[in-house]
Design a protein around this nucleic acid. Structure first.
Lengths: 204, 204, 204, 204
DNA sequence: GAATAACCGAGACGGTACGTCTAGTCTTGTG
DNA sequence: CACAAGACTAGACGTACCGTCTCGGTTATTC
């Protein structure tokens, strides 16, 4: 199963594929996914939205799942920019604020979160999302942490791999509370400060 | 426990509904959801598995969504037991280990995680899951935190509402890494210790 | 299978059936049949129209077919009156005109015709319709023929059994042409005159 | 001047319909109708019998009624042959005997009769049956009558439109008596002779 | 004056078919 | 070859009736 159209060897034979159609299809698929979620996602709707025959979609993405993968790759189109230099606390807040804001407000952010959940029933999807979509985003945070350790603002014995879940996990958790009335409101600052200081009583 | 429409007022008119069928339907639905996820979830399969006519399902759950809600309520059938007394660190690890283990291993745990993602496109689902399924589980953690504060093991100025995302969020994040080869392996102990101590350098 | 509720032996025990309900059910059934034909005929609609529970219908008419039979019997409520005395030609025209007019205009007449067709797939229905509904109507025509033979207006060697199909059959045939644009218009008088005179050239 | 006619092959766009499937569907539908009548007629059974998906049926016949019409057209597959030359009485008997025999014995004949009755509640069905199915059959009889008039065997002032109901109507009437025990048995010969001679006493 | 037995309204229940929709494959014709 | 268009199989969707059943409550006759 190819998750994206790959035809390296120069030019085969016959009529070449229209590359604009590739992007039109994945764009349409991404919009459909963002609007209706995985359940309402329909190959026919994608083809219609892209103004393309169903065959043309299936030629590139043999199955619905492949089309989903192809669409999700387009989430990398707008990667967040790294935060400006400054105190590590502010930089962490900026990064996580962006994560949280996207997850709460933009349909693409919600889609990304939903993809993580969906991946639990589709290892292939999970692998792809984590390796191709989430990894680049993690790197931004990893850099901020490394900078903080280098500047002495953070403990030097920290393991970034253990730290990323601690920082990003709460954002996912809060994102899932979107528009849930019964959920308490917690600010990103409160989270970051809690993590920075730790839970143990301060030693005098 | 009846997951579907309660009809308190004595006995209305007509033949009363067979309550055993209620549970058989929701059980079947829960199993179907656990095994195949939301996408492959089919009312007909639920009816067949419950040994019941399709109409009997639709009488209780007018739409597929309603049936999903009814099934997810059954997740409360096996709430985790509170951890035994002991040092707060060990109790936290025990609670979170259970969350992580369930999320990783049991099909119901995966289903619960997926429901959170699915809720992003269905406010009704989100509200229900958070209020009826997640709330009771949060309470266990909240109690452990309260005990820790009372015993002086934790800082007394902690806000549990800010703390719960910090502790539970990472579990969700790790749970989503299940069977993702490219994901780093992080132990629950490492997470808890990181959170307990905090990120700032220790003041001498 | 009882085609009508018959409980002769005085009064058994328990609450007696409400006889008004019998007629309300058959009336409702007859109207439903007249309006929608056999295909759209629904026990539930009959019960609703009669303002009665489905059980109450099924107690009297164990099956849909029985209900149809019970309803068709009500067609005998308005039997045509015998024609006034006069020349046999005018009397025949009057009788057949009534048959044709009913079959063309009234919904009950159409229903009766349709019942004949339906009887081809349901011997029980056919037997009932012919013995209970059509027989009384045939008798009117039979009397007119007998009077005509007695008065010398008709040939004395006529077999009424062969004659009735010759006279009534065309009415059915014409009735079936109702609102069929491509069908030629033929008057009842023309039919009767054709039959009276015969097809052979007049012998000098 | 009319617009230029488009080329007939015109092979529109997309994959053309498999014409064999058309006939398989209508054949299956005709058999189902013949066996079970209109009431038991089921689109699903037709699809199953034709070995075809339900959607394939609905693509051609958007509704059950349309499928019925399509099936009834197939009744024209076996039109009766005109009778051999001979005396007009024998030719009439032959034609009508065939009508009666078919109506009594063959399932298709019964179906045709039932369609006439059904047409009373469906103008479209009535129009189709009369124009496309019955018209060709009437023509055979009309020819025999015309031959009889030409040869002087029949009165020259006969109106075939008035005559056809007189001859065919009784066949329908007798056909409806099939397997009705209480119905008198009348032969086709008796009918024809009665019509030929007429009802009035012979003038000396 | 109960006790009994059948009636009646209401609706649950297992089925079957409806007509619609989508997935994924295939078969045309055209560029 | 690519592409548009649409036929095709397969199967789930949610609805409507069928005929059966189980309730609560209502009459009449019988003991």
């Amino acid at each position: 199963m190819t998750t994206a159209p790959a035809r390296e060897p120069a030019q085969r034979k016959g009529r070449p594929r229209d590359e604009r159609i590739d992007t039109e299809i994945t764009s349409a698929a991404l919009e459909e996914l963002s609007e209706g979620g995985f359940e309402r996602f329909t190959v026919e709707a994608v083809a219609a939205r892209a103004g393309v025959a169903k065959t043309t979609v299936y030629r590139r993405f043999p199955t619905r799942e492949d089309l989903v993968l192809g669409a999700l790759l387009r989430l990398n189109d707008d990667l967040p920019a790294p935060p400006p230099p400054g105190p590590v606390r502010e930089r962490l807040i900026a990064v996580l604020q962006a994560v949280r804001s996207r997850a709460t407000n933009s349909s693409r952010g919600r889609l990304l979160m939903q993809s993580v959940g969906e991946g639990l029933h589709s290892p292939e999807l999970a692998e792809m999302v984590h390796a191709r979509v989430l990894a680049p985003r993690r790197q931004v945070l990893r850099d901020v942490i490394a900078d903080g350790i280098a500047s002495g603002e953070l403990r030097s014995d920290l393991d970034p791999d253990a730290l990323i879940p601690v920082l990003v996990g709460p954002m996912f958790y809060l994102g899932a509370w979107k528009c849930v009335a019964s959920a308490p409101k917690v600010s990103v600052e409160a989270i970051v400060d809690t993590v920075l200081v730790g839970l143990l009583p301060l030693r005098p």
